[in-house]
Design a protein around this nucleic acid. Structure first.
Length: 430
RNA sequence: GGGGGGUUGGCCGAGUGGUUGAAGGCAACGGUCUUGAAAACCGUAGUGGGGCAACCCACCGGGGGUUCGAAUCCCUCACCCCUCGCCA
């Protein structure tokens, strides 16, 4: 959400953001409605002033003057009773529009329609050179007896997954490693539920607009968040923090649920796109300056890159264009990790700087050093998301015999083991 | 799931229908005093909105109602605490 005053004073900048981000919103409708709300409010307030003044006269009036004053109060009340709902409805409509106003993209963001116009910034790491035909992760898992796609589909439907045996240890190792690693870089570990109230999703910016991506819980007014960003963003909702409390930086572990409505047929095989997964999310609440925000952006990005390097995975850094970055974002980079079987980089991390757009929705304020109450800035980036990360991890580190080499960084979490799995393939004599 | 008690300003905490936007305390800020600091004393001070301004409006967990007038009365929802039962 942007400051209404800012929108009034900078309509052209906002109009441009709406346009380059491809948001369906009529700014003139919003501005018109805003003027109507102001006018209505002034009428209501004038009536309220009169009513309040009148009510104060009653107890001091002589008994014979009271009936007239009370009658006047009744009349004013009636008039107000008619006007107030009108004002409330107009305000609600205005807020509805306001929630859809996108944040202004940073000047460095390339203008584009969709992900095809994202810009690759750099590539890191060496692509693996296999002296054999590499297997894809589905094949590897099945041969090792680490998955059971048929059965789990019977239990949980499509886009579900199941791991068994050492693959479970690997998944836990990856999560533990990410938590430890981020803690070492100054983030506070946090474990949270995915079950959240609907207003938290408005706060994060997923609503309005993303309703069909979210699972709702029958019988309770609760939903299942697709990322710990949602509950963490709302943790301090409505509070007035002191600037000494900032920054707040978390490594948040949670389950994540996504309905994946609209992606039918995409990535139906394997572990890339599932309805329920686990994720360590980096989330930061910092002071309200772009300098501070961008500093954290670099830090969160570097954390994620360092994690991928430690896992010995090749990846590239992509800057998302205006059309692919989401309404609330000022700046967004994706990390895409190499998936040998697809001969492609696939998104495993997403780093975002939101300015005060989220905090304004959530009511996340702090007193700055001058005692002024301001909205904080927020950022988020993936730490590690599993099972998706297992796809490049298994595929890049597979060996000729179908076993998996364990990157050194993970070995402490796997009892020192350097290899997982048993030989499941003939190794061709060279 | 049953019963009881709560939710007031940054924090603690008064306040059961009429100058209460809200006593008091703490914290904060400005000043006096002091070589400096502390203490003491004086003063300022909630959030949001409208207006050039004087000033006005809203907000005492959320929503609704009663009333000329509600922090105060009623309904409802959420959350917190205690307690009984159940349970990983």
């Amino acid at each position: 959400m942007l400051d209404l005053k800012f929108i009034r004073e900078n309509p052209e900048a906002v109009r441009r953001a709406i346009q380059v981000k491809g948001v369906a919103l009529d700014l003139d409708e919003l501005l018109q409605l805003d003027r109507e709300v102001v006018a209505l409010r002034q009428r209501v307030e004038a009536l309220q002033t009169e009513r309040n003044a009148n009510a104060k006269l009653v107890p001091r009036a002589a008994p014979d003057e009271r009936p007239a004053l009370i009658q006047k109060g009744k009349d004013l009340g009636k008039e107000l009773g008619a006007l107030e709902p009108e004002l409330r409805a107009a305000e609600e409509r205005l807020r509805g529009l306001l929630l859809r106003v996108p944040n202004l993209p940073h000047p460095s963001v390339p203008v584009g329609q969709d992900d095809s116009e994202n810009v690759e910034l750099r590539r890191e790491g060496q692509l693996p050179q296999f002296a054999f035909a590499p297997l894809d992760h589905v094949e590897l898992l099945e041969r090792q007896g680490w998955s059971d796609p048929e059965r789990v589909a019977r239990v949980s439907g499509s886009r579900s997954y199941l791991l068994r045996g050492d693959a479970v240890l690997l998944e836990m190792a990856v999560l533990m490693f990410a938590m430890d690693f981020l803690r070492g870089r100054g983030l506070e570990p946090l474990s949270t539920t995915a079950l959240v109230r609907p207003e938290t999703l408005v706060g994060s910016g997923h609503f309005p607009g993303g309703e069909d991506q979210v699972y709702k819980v029958e019988g309770d007014d609760l939903m299942l968040a697709g990322t710990a960003e949602v509950p963490i963003n709302s943790l301090y909702a409505g509070e007035q923090l002191s600037h000494e409390q900032l920054p707040l930086a978390f490594a948040g572990l949670s389950a994540a649920f996504r309905s994946e409505a609209g992606s039918a047929g995409r990535d139906v095989r394997g572990l890339i796109r599932v309805h329920e997964f686990r994720k360590v999310e980096q989330y930061v609440l910092c002071e309200a300056s772009e300098e501070e925000g961008l500093k954290w952006f670099d830090r969160l990005l570097d954390n994620a890159e360092a994690l991928l390097r430690a896992l010995e995975l090749p990846y590239r850094v992509v800057q998302n264009c205006t059309g692919d970055m989401g309404a609330g974002k000022v700046l967004m980079y994706d990390l895409e990790t190499w998936v040998p079987s697809e001969e492609k980089y696939r998104e495993t991390h997403s780093c975002s700087y939101l300015g005060d757009w989220q905090a304004r929705r959530t009511g996340l304020r702090y007193r700055d050093e001058h005692g002024k109450l301001v909205y904080a800035h927020t950022l988020n980036n993936t730490g590690i998301a599993t099972p998706r990360i297992l796809v490049p991890l298994l595929e890049n580190h597979q060996q000729a015999d179908g076993t998996i080499r364990v990157p050194a960084a993970l070995r402490p979490y796997l009892g020192g083991r350097e290899v997982l799995g048993v030989p499941v393939r003939e190794v061709a004599a060279v």
